[in-house]
Design a protein around this nucleic acid. Structure first.
Lengths: 228, 228
DNA sequence: GGCCCAATTTGACGTCGATCAAACTGGGCC
DNA sequence: GGCCCAGTTTGATCGACGTCAAATTGGGCC
């Protein structure tokens, strides 16, 4: 399951220190967290944990993308969140139950830091900056999951895609272009769409000046996307 | 907007003390929270706060139901969560930004306790039980919002209704009956359905032994609902 | 540069749920 | 008990998206 599994080396400590979670900690707490981190690399499609397993650790992603999803009785999958470099996941179980509530899978080769829940719980009791950082992360994830519900319920496929493109645009107006950091099928899942529906949404955005070639998306006019 | 607005009296302090949030606090923190609570009653349909307003307070509901929702550009509404007695809401803004991110509206006559965010932030720094209780609440809300996304994406209307009924069933098997605590249109919204779709879902569940008369739902066999 | 295979796109079709309009009902109130 | 009206149900229609199958493409690799 785990390719490698070791304590964080200097390079990995530096990467971790740049994440918003670790940066929010006091120097003392930060170094305790770094000392407690276990680093592992996993190949694409590997399972990180499964729904129902005992939730002993939570994770911080250093490189690659991870898919959090649940499976229905008839085998269909629904993505809950896609995590990228710097994102934490399963932190909702620090005070939220003792079993994982969804599956986590590497969407490509990934490097991740694993933290022991119990250790962090104890750290949070002693150092208020730890509790504060956890609360900030939980709030952030809660708000974006709420956004997800609202998007699903109010927007059509082309609108969700336009929204997504806007969040990843550097500029506020005019033409620009974006390179997707992952496969389209992953993007489809995070928008709650079948890959075919994403493809059709892109092609319906052609009239709005959006051109797709592989992972590169050309946007004729950012303003125009705002009123899809 | 606010009918009454006063400090919590004995009756209200008792109600508040029974909520899972307050019960998780140390005696000291608990009494500070109760002292800081402002009680208000509001009539059905009244707005409690709107998206974009400065987020100065969060709330704990003492009686009635509150709808959290967002409005799309073309005026359609999507419910994010329905809160009942004992539920907290807008607590995700304690460490999650300075503006409300959704609207809150009384679904019927409600009594609610208002807490000053800044006061509670300070309390959380001093007393770890406060931070712990906030984290537990945030985790709980995050997990149930994730459930909501998954339900929307994987289940049809009859399945969502069956799920809902199962969560509110006292018994594990055999026949039973349930009384909805609110209007069907509110239930429809929380399941992400139009009222018509909820009605049709109920009528499609008749073949599974579900009978509806007003707010009373008769269930022939709880087991049967599990494999809708 | 060409090959190859997985990823993506396109086409055809079915189903689910939104919407609008009209009929009905149940529960609060006198 | 009867009235009344908001809330709910029913009917008809439509658009959006999922699914399956087949065609196409792009990007990694030699």
């Amino acid at each position: 399951m785990l390719d490698r599994n070791h304590r964080a080396n200097q390079r990995e400590r530096t990467l971790l220190s740049k994440t918003s979670f670790i940066r929010a900690l006091s120097p003392m707490a930060s170094s305790k967290m770094l000392d407690g981190a276990h680093i592992a690399t996993m190949p694409a499609r590997a399972s990180i944990f499964r729904e129902g397993e005992a939730a002993l650790s939570f994770y911080c992603l250093l490189s690659g993308y991870v898919r959090l999803y649940r499976v229905s009785r008839d085998g269909r999958q629904a993505d809950i969140r896609i995590c990228g470099p710097g994102d934490m996941f399963a932190e909702c179980l620090i005070y939220g139950g003792d079993k994982y509530r969804f599956n986590a899978q590497a969407a490509e080769n990934v490097t991740l830091a694993r933290f022991d829940m119990q250790d962090v719980r104890e750290l949070a009791e002693q150092d208020p900056t730890v509790a504060k950082a956890i609360m900030a992360t939980l709030s952030d994830h809660l708000l974006s999951t709420m956004d997800c519900v609202v998007n699903d319920r109010l927007h059509t496929a082309p609108q969700r895609v336009a929204d997504y493109l806007l969040t990843r645009c550097a500029t506020e107006n005019g033409p620009t272009s974006i390179r997707l950091p992952y496969q389209k099928s992953l993007l489809a899942g995070m928008l709650g769409l079948a890959p075919e529906a994403l493809s059709r949404a892109f092609s319906s955005l052609r009239r709005t000046g959006v051109t797709v070639r592989g992972r590169v998306i050309q946007i004729g006019n950012v303003e125009a996307l705002k009123d899809v």
